[in-house]
């Protein structure tokens, strides 16, 4: 309940300041436009559109999800958070915020993508949905803990993609594979190993982040 209250505070603050939403929206629009212009009249394969989808998602996440902690640090309100809640509440509240943001971001990207790329068609929607569900959760968890780590550094902008790349790489590789399977119409049962890997990644990242956050948060 306390975490939900922190999430509500962050959400209301976001709606008023538009720290992350504007950055995300602009990044999504610009990236998709650049891809569209660079393709021109060329007909690209289904599998390539699937790959490009995760490129857009990865870089959009880079641009917006770090704001959860960075905005607190930049505004100087980190001390206020220290004084009102325990570290676990802060982590869970910020994670909730990033989960909502990443789901909204990914839904918008997929809708835009489906409208703008003719060759982007999913044969097994169920598998694509599961990949999106667990994949987005993994992105949200990883981004939250990386954001907490980099918020105290001076070169935040550079550090975020540098730290995020090795942590998100296994996730992105599996998501590319699952997207390929869902485009080809492979069944969920046949993709069990990849889905199990995805769920394991989420569980490991969530547990490690929850345990590490105390050390990151406290001076």
């Amino acid at each position: 309940m306390k975490s939900y209250s922190l999430f509500k505070k962050d959400w209301q603050s976001e709606l008023r300041t538009r720290y992350a939403i504007n950055a995300l929206a602009m990044f999504i629009l610009v990236t998709i436009s650049v891809i569209l212009f660079s393709i021109g009249q060329e007909k690209i394969s289904k599998l390539l559109t699937g790959g490009l989808l995760w490129v857009v998602i990865f870089f959009s996440a880079m641009s917006g999800l770090a704001r959860a902690f960075v905005s607190e640090e930049e505004r100087g309100t980190t001390l206020t958070l220290h004084l009102i809640a325990k570290p676990s509440t802060i982590f869970t509240g910020k994670l909730l915020f990033n989960i909502v943001l990443v789901y909204l971001m990914n839904i918008s990207i997929v809708i835009l993508y489906s409208l703008l790329f003719e060759s982007f068609s999913i044969e097994n929607v169920g598998l694509f949905f599961l990949a999106g569900l667990f994949g987005s959760f993994g992105i949200a968890v990883s981004s939250t803990i990386i954001a907490a780590i980099i918020s105290k550094a001076s070169a935040k902008g550079t550090l975020y993609p540098v730290l995020a790349f090795p942590i998100l790489l296994p996730l992105i590789l599996i998501l590319l594979e699952l997207t390929k399977y869902s485009i080809n119409g492979k069944t969920i049962a046949a993709s069990f190993i990849e889905l199990a890997f995805l769920v394991s990644y989420d569980v490991v990242m969530l547990t490690a982040s929850y345990m590490l956050f105390d050390f990151i948060w406290k001076d």
Binding site: K2, S5, L6, K8, K9, Q12, S13, R16, T17, R75, T77, T80, I84, A85, T89, G93
Partner: peptide, 17 residues
Amino acid sequence: YDEFSAEENILHFLKIR
């Protein structure tokens, strides 16, 4: 938080507590 009113700030903090 500058984007909230004084009362909103206090109410948010109480809820988070």
